[in-house]
Amino acid sequence: MAQRGGPEPFIWVDVVEPQRDAAAAYDRPDAERRTLRLTLSLRVVSAYLHVGSGQLGIWKGRAYQQFARVGDQILLPGSGVKGAVRALAEALSRSCMPHGAGRGDPRPCGPIPRGASEIRLCPACRLFGATGYRGRVLFEDALPESGVQTEIIRLPAAWRPRRSEGRKLYPRRDFQTPAEGGRIRWVEAVPRGATFRLRLLAENVDGAELGLLLRALGLDVQDGKLVAVLAIPMGGGKPLGLGGVKVVQVEVEEWDPRALTWRAADPAEGVRWNLVRGEVWRALRSWLSAGSV
């Protein structure tokens, strides 16, 4: 069950026993499964989004943490977007904790022994992969759709987590710029309204796996259309109100193995929600609401 952590700015989602089933192959198409290509527009709906590069820059004599980029082009690395989406998929399903499992938590699915005759994985590992098993959802880097300008903003110094009671997620909240003085840090961020174009490939997925992926992207099916109802927490500064990203446009194509081409697809076709923990989804819809931005 998901619950608020008292006055702290986060949500605990309890860890449950993983639901492990046989993992599908990605190199052997199945008539009961689909291979889809999703092209998404991602819009920043929080005050700012900061996705760090690990590099430092100098601005007005101050060192700051740079936004991720290749050359002069800022971007959202596909690996980082995948990690943010996977974190929601893990919380929304009966999945393991592949990283940072605490004492008493269920063991992670990996590593997978070489040459294993049968691979049984939790829902998130079946979709996104585990050590020894390549995932079937692949993310490209997301590039800005228009002339996105970055800003240098100040944040309070980060602190080390003191306890763990499950999976920690941060609800949306208003960002307040800290006062000058004290322990602060400077980061490069993009402001609310910035949009990025992302393409991802979902290989050989069944209806339940597709349903979990859509939920982890913050999407619901309403009147046969995909609608964003939940913001994806992404990047740094989430406890402070940064890092809310919403899907504002979706194009779905399906691979036709007979014609050897992509064709427009109905995103709601065959979707099932039985891998999604209903009580967690309802709680996160409230706490991570995509709002009207």
Results as ranks from 00 to 15, higher is better:
139 F>V: 10
89 A>I: 13
170 Y>Q: 11
122 C>W: 05
105 D>Q: 08
197 R>G: 15
199 R>C: 05
191 P>N: 02
204 N>R: 14
131 T>E: 13
90 E>W: 00
99 H>S: 08
142 A>S: 06
158 A>Q: 14
176 Q>H: 14
206 D>T: 07
81 V>E: 07
191 P>H: 05
198 L>M: 06
187 V>P: 01
116 A>R: 11
135 G>M: 10
160 R>D: 03
209 E>P: 00
189 A>M: 07
215 R>L: 02
189 A>R: 10
212 L>A: 11
108 P>Q: 06
198 L>I: 07
190 V>P: 05
94 R>L: 11
91 A>G: 15
186 W>H: 15
149 Q>D: 07
182 G>P: 09
171 P>T: 04
189 A>K: 06
94 R>D: 01
88 L>P: 08
111 P>N: 11
93 S>R: 02
183 R>S: 14
214 L>G: 00
149 Q>I: 08
94 R>Q: 12
119 I>R: 12
214 L>D: 02
86 R>C: 07
181 G>F: 09
103 R>N: 08
213 L>T: 03
157 A>S: 15
208 A>D: 14
106 P>W: 00
109 C>N: 01
94 R>K: 13
187 V>Y: 08
151 E>M: 10
123 P>F: 00
209 E>N: 04
202 A>H: 08
167 R>I: 14
99 H>P: 00
115 G>V: 00
176 Q>I: 15
172 R>M: 06
110 G>D: 01
183 R>K: 11
120 R>E: 11
113 P>S: 12
193 G>Q: 10
201 L>W: 15
210 L>C: 02
150 T>E: 03
147 G>E: 15
148 V>P: 01
144 P>H: 03
123 P>S: 10
191 P>V: 09
124 A>D: 09
184 I>Q: 07
197 R>D: 04
158 A>V: 09
215 R>Y: 03
86 R>M: 06
152 I>L: 09
116 A>I: 10
86 R>F: 10
150 T>Y: 06
95 S>I: 11
171 P>K: 13
146 S>W: 06
131 T>N: 05
188 E>G: 14
81 V>K: 02
119 I>G: 02
